[in-house]
């Protein structure tokens, strides 16, 4: 029997992040899903922007990786979860990296902190051995 609060993954897909063109694909694919699932235009824009930031981080700081995109359903409520993983050097000081303006690569330092503001949930795991995994979710 299906209960109302159970979280179900209704759709999922994995996209590579190896080149700049992959970043464009990631943005387009996320956009397509969101418009198919009828997220509002503002939600779409926020989520695609966060995806662009995090995919670029995986490419530039993590040496490339992938994004797993999943559509979630809890009862009638829908959400999208994006998981970015790479096997790069990891982030030495996560709490510093989460600060507005902090960058080790001459960027704007807004990718991590900004994505956290744009999404409902934000999770980050990082170590020199296993690389970096950032998981973000936004509910409709």
């Amino acid at each position: 029997m299906r209960t109302v609060s159970e979280q179900i993954i209704t759709r999922s897909e994995v996209l590579p992040i190896r080149t700049q063109i992959d970043l464009v694909h990631v943005r387009q694919r996320v956009r397509t899903w969101l418009s198919e699932e009828r997220f509002t235009l503002i939600d779409q824009t926020k989520i695609v922007t966060a995806a662009s930031e995090l995919a670029r981080n995986a490419l530039e700081h993590g040496g490339g990786g992938e994004m797993e995109m999943s559509l979630l359903a809890v009862g009638a409520r829908k959400g999208i979860r994006l998981k970015f993983s790479d096997h790069g050097p990891g982030i030495a000081d996560i709490s510093k990296a989460m600060k507005d303006g902090y960058t080790t690569a001459g960027g704007m330092g807004l990718g991590l902190s900004g994505s956290r503001r744009l999404m409902s949930e934000f999770e980050i795991q990082s170590s020199p051995e296993s690389g970096t995994v950032v998981t973000v979710t936004r509910w409709k």
């Binding site: 503002i42 824009t45 503001r117």
Partner: peptide
Amino acid sequence: MQPAVAITLVELGM
């Protein structure tokens, strides 16, 4: 600049 883009950019911190 579209409204949705502007709102997002502000939220991003730019």
